[in-house]
C-alpha cells in the first residue's frame, strides 16, 4: 500500500475463493476514509457483488484495486475473461422473487457511480463512493 502526502492510497487485492477475507481487508483499507457507517457497508456489499460476478462468470483470475482519496473511494474489479460487456447491465430491478439479476442492480443502488468497461484485456467494474 502506498500513501502519498495528500493521504491518497492504493492497494491491490486478488479475488480468490474467500470473499470474507477480501471484505475484511477492504474494510481495513477504507477505515481512514471519511465514509459513514452505512456508506461503508454499502460499498463493501457492492465490491462483494462485483467479486461474486468474477467468481461466477469469469473463471479467470480477478483483481480488486482500491483507491482512497480525500473526497471519495474507488474500487475497480477486473477480470481477464471480459464476460461483462453490457455497460447498461443492472439498470432495472429484478422481478420480485427472481433468483438472478441482483448483483449489478445492487451495485448501482449502493454506489454513487458504477461504470462497466470491457475490451480485449477483460472487463472492469468501477465503483465510486463519495465521502459525506
Amino acid at each position: 500500500m502506498a500513501d502519498d502526502a495528500h493521504g491518497e492510497a492504493v492497494t491491490s487485492l486478488p479475488i480468490g475463493g474467500n470473499l470474507s477475507e477480501l471484505r475484511e481487508r477492504t474494510r481495513d483499507f477504507l477505515t481512514p476514509a471519511k465514509l459513514g457507517e452505512r456508506q461503508e457497508a454499502n460499498f463493501i456489499l457492492a465490491i462483494s457483488e462485483a467479486a461474486n460476478n468474477v467468481l461466477d462468470h469469469a473463471r479467470t483470475p480477478g483483481v480488486l484495486v482500491l483507491r482512497r482519496y480525500a473526497d471519495r473511494v474507488v474500487a475497480e474489479i477486473s477480470d481477464e475473461a471480459g464476460t461483462l460487456t453490457d455497460p447498461r447491465a443492472g439498470m432495472t430491478a429484478p422481478e420480485v422473487g427472481s433468483r438472478r439479476g441482483y448483483g449489478l442492480w445492487l451495485m448501482r443502488q449502493m454506489c454513487d457511480e458504477v461504470e462497466i468497461t470491457s475490451g480485449p484485456a477483460g472487463s472492469t467494474v468501477r465503483l465510486v463512493m463519495r465521502c459525506d
Binding site: 463493501i44 456489499l45 461474486n52 433468483r99 438472478r100 445492487l106
Partner: peptide, 13 residues
C-alpha cells in the same frame, strides 16, 4: 452482519 445476493437467493429458495 452481512448478506449478499447469494444469501438473498438462498433465503428465497
Amino acid at each position: 452482519p452481512f448478506c449478499d445476493s447469494s444469501g438473498i437467493v438462498m433465503l428465497l429458495d
